[in-house]
Amino acid sequence: MEQDWIMGLLGGLIIGLAGAVYLLGNGRIMGASGIIGGLVDGSGRNSWLERVVFIAAVFAAPIVLMPLYTGVDTHITQNIWVVVIAGLLVGVGTRMANGCTSGHGVCGMSRLSFRGIMSTVFYILAGGITMVFFRHILEVI
């Protein structure tokens, strides 16, 4: 468990560094939902190449690191309906709120943005309630 925390802290520092590079280099907030969403709905048409390069690098980095690790795993539910509904909620919700864990959470809270803090409070609360309901009461995830 302690090792997970150390890796979490180390990975977190690298995530923060990524956000710092994007902000100081390109003058942009490193928000994953905004970078992806701007491509999907066309609002980011003028900066499409920058967005595609960023997303491709996010996709590729774990492939490069993978050989250094053993037993990389993920534990997503195998219930396809849950996965589809979750994806739709994340897609609609992050665009409606104009940010997700990276934009509102990492970039927003670090500049003491009231909206970033409020968003983070509400998505964590909603996530916690969802866990209680769907894991402990309905037992579907």
Partner: peptide, 25 residues
Amino acid sequence: KLITGSVLFGAGWALAGLCPGPSIA
């Protein structure tokens, strides 16, 4: 809008355990 969007996002985040960045990674 901010609050509703965040609540919808939070629910989906919990159901799958993924948010936009990690889903790509």
